[in-house]
Design a binder for these strands. Structure first.
Lengths: 133, 133
DNA sequence: CTATGAAGTAGAGCCGACTCTAGGTCAAGC
DNA sequence: GCTTGACCTAGAGTCGGCTCTACTTCATAG
């Protein structure tokens, strides 16, 4: 049964950009969809699917979903079919938050861009005067 | 000299959405461009310009600028003319960070929207089947 | 006069998300 | 046989940004 070779925690850290500490922490926090199998010496053996799942979790974290909410979502996935509506709710709610955040961020960016423009003009005018005559 | 009446810390809290605690904290952290004047009994008296400045600081914070960097910027403004290039540098750097953050956030949003779509389709198909026949 | 409420100060506490420490196991290489 | 390095566990520490506590001072209202 060629299930694809397992990965060590170090390899997963490399592939995801997470630290080994963070990986253990995430596991303890229950945000791994499938239980991590243990190899000789009690070492974690990850599969590609774990890496994929972690990458999604990273996206959720990056966009500000708190760990407890990722855990809730993970638990639903672990429970299997039948709770898709609940999963959808979590995702939709988060989607909305991210959209709002982007609107806010755009407002901030507009202000900053405005100020950058003003300072740029001013700095240019000084430079021109100095060089010009 | 009709300089516009002063505002109490409570009024500024109302107008900015910051807590009075946060206002005192910001002052202690040195992110007020002008020193807050004190009224009878040692009470802070803010001017409209302080509110304006605070609103900008709020934008900077919302977009992720750390307090120490806001302080650096504030100090430059306090020093007065002559350091516009440095102020520009801070703003430009932050502008870039915010832009990157928005790109990342958009990627996350795309993934979430994709998943929401999938779950929505699935949930719809279940509902249809149940109602349909 | 006394109680209420808004203000003041200094400093402790909290929360989230890691990050790091201490002390241990184990396999491979010199 | 000893070192190195990757891994293990449990739990402590860190950091940023507030938030809250304890206690005081004042001014106004009842």
């Amino acid at each position: 049964m060629l299930a694809g070779m397992g990965l060590s925690i170090g390899q997963v850290a490399e592939r995801t950009g997470l630290s080994v500490h963070a990986l253990r922490f995430y596991e303890k926090e229950g945000i791994l969809a499938h239980q991590v199998h243990r190899g000789p010496g009690g070492r974690r053996v990850y599969q590609q699917q774990d890496v994929d799942w972690l990458r999604m979790c990273i996206m959720l974290r990056m966009s500000g979903m708190p760990v407890p909410e990722i855990r809730r979502y993970t638990e639903l996935v672990r429970q299997g079919d039948g709770n898709e509506l609940q999963r959808l709710d979590i995702l939709k709610e988060h989607q909305e938050r991210v959209q709002q955040q982007m609107v806010q961020l755009q407002e901030c960016l507009d202000l900053i861009t405005y100020k950058v423009g003003k300072y740029q003009d001013y700095v240019n005018s000084i430079a021109t005067r100095a060089v010009g005559q």
